[in-house]
């Protein structure tokens, strides 16, 4: 319930036009990875905290808040098939409603899977809390 924090690297973000889908997220991750490689910028080291409230990311060097995404804004999460150390989620931007796909590089495939499973657990707990509240 209190959430779990993972040390990941934020590779980038791209806009998508659907809230979910394997092909869609694979294409989005491909775009993000290509852009990151082209820019040769080092991925930003972040503390990635998952809880039934949502996902909070902090910049690990400055401790600055980067993203605070409510669990109700997140539609989908996945470990990319091709880049299997990459975890990605799709969320709706609270201000303009656009759908964003954010991708994170994990140290190992196992870590990417652990992040995805933890986010999935947060989805389930949030759903149970929502049903109780309804």
């Amino acid at each position: 319930l209190e959430g779990m924090t993972f040390n990941l690297s934020h590779i980038g973000m791209t806009l998508v036009d659907q809230p979910k889908g394997e092909e869609l997220s694979a294409a989005a991750v491909k775009r993000i990875v290509a852009t990151a490689k082209a820019s040769r910028k080092k991925p930003q080291k972040v503390a990635f905290k998952v809880s039934p409230q949502g996902i909070v990311t902090l910049d690990r060097s400055t401790n600055k808040l980067l993203e605070n995404v409510s669990i109700y804004r997140i539609s989908y999460c996945t470990v990319d098939k091709l880049h299997d150390k990459v975890f990605a989620y799709i969320a709706q931007n609270t201000f303009n409603g656009t759908l964003e796909c954010h991708a994170y590089l994990c140290s190992k495939r196992k870590v990417a899977q652990a992040v995805a499973l933890t986010v999935a657990q947060a989805f389930t707990v949030a759903f149970e809390l929502w049903q109780v509240a309804k």
Binding site: P19, Y72, R73, I74, Y76, T78, Q113, F123, A133
Partner: peptide
């Protein structure tokens, strides 16, 4: 085969009547 790991969020866009 889709051995990718992916999860849909059942509370996506559910409003919180708080």
């Amino acid at each position: 085969n889709s051995n990718t790991i992916h999860f849909h969020n059942p509370v996506y866009q559910k409003t919180t009547e708080d």
